[in-house]
């Protein structure tokens, strides 16, 4: 299971590497992101903002990547109880703490399998993700303009793929639509890179206020399920 997940995820690394060099990063910059940032969503975010805004987008690029990495902190909280690590090995476990290693570990029955599942998946994804990033970076670097091969359209599709499995309830769907509309509206007035980091928290706030207003009216039963997590 772990190796299969590692290989499949690694293939996304191909699209990351290609998009990174097509966005103007060097092969080594793409590789350093896969080695040290090692979190797909954050990596796509940083290259997306840098590609669109260049050097002016450094701060929003870092902020978008950082905010998208927050979920890894919650996986780490859970895994820290499962793995029961002491000392410096925590540093390595932290680096391997990603969507896939958390998911595989969560799917196991007993605590020994949960630990093995985490380590093997983390290591397998790390190896495949980095190998395919390198291949993708070489491919992407050989394309003269990202538009010719539709690589600019692939970036939007990549984010949609990360978003899709999370749209399981009414509340995430409402936040997603609200954030997309806000980002589109803010695109003109705000400097590039900024709409994303403003739209997302604003959408969360608006949907929370809406939920609060509905609750206060006391209409129960008529509203769709508000379950927010997966």
């Amino acid at each position: 299971m772990s190796l299969g997940v590692g290989f499949a995820t690694g293939l996304y690394g191909l699209s990351f590497g290609a998009l990174a060099t097509a966005s103007g990063l060097s092969i080594w910059q793409a590789q350093v992101l896969s080695l040290f940032m090692f979190s797909g969503g954050s990596q796509f975010a940083i290259i997306g903002v840098l590609g669109a805004s260049g050097a002016a987008g450094i701060i929003p690029a870092v902020l978008s990547a950082w905010l998208l990495g927050i979920r890894n902190g919650f996986y780490a909280l859970r895994l820290s109880g499962v793995l029961q690590l002491v000392g410096a090995i925590k540093l390595l476990a932290a680096q391997f703490t990603i969507d896939e290693s958390n998911a595989v570990s969560l799917a196991q029955e007993d605590s020994k399998q949960q630990k093995t599942g985490f380590w093997i998946t983390g290591a397998a994804v790390f190896i495949f993700w980095n190998g395919f990033t390198f291949l993708g970076a070489i491919l992407g670097g050989s394309v003269s303009s990202p538009g010719v091969w539709g690589l600019d359209a692939a970036a939007g599709a990549a984010f949609l793929g990360l978003l899709w499995p999370r749209l399981t309830h009414f509340q995430p769907l409402a936040i997603g639509i609200c954030s997309a509309v806000l980002a589109a509206l803010l695109l003109g007035p705000l400097p590039s890179g900024i709409p994303v980091i403003v739209a997302a928290p604003l959408a969360v706030l608006l949907v929370w206020l809406l939920r609060f207003a509905i609750k206060k009216r006391g209409t129960s039963g008529s509203i769709p399920s508000m379950g927010g997590d997966e």
């Binding site: 969503g41 979920r71 978003l163 995430p172 997603g176 639509i177 954030s179 980002a183 980091i197 927010g228």
Partner: peptide, 13 residues
Amino acid sequence: NQLTVGLLAALCT
């Protein structure tokens, strides 16, 4: 979780 959804939707747009 909700911040993650918001960010991905905004980035996609």
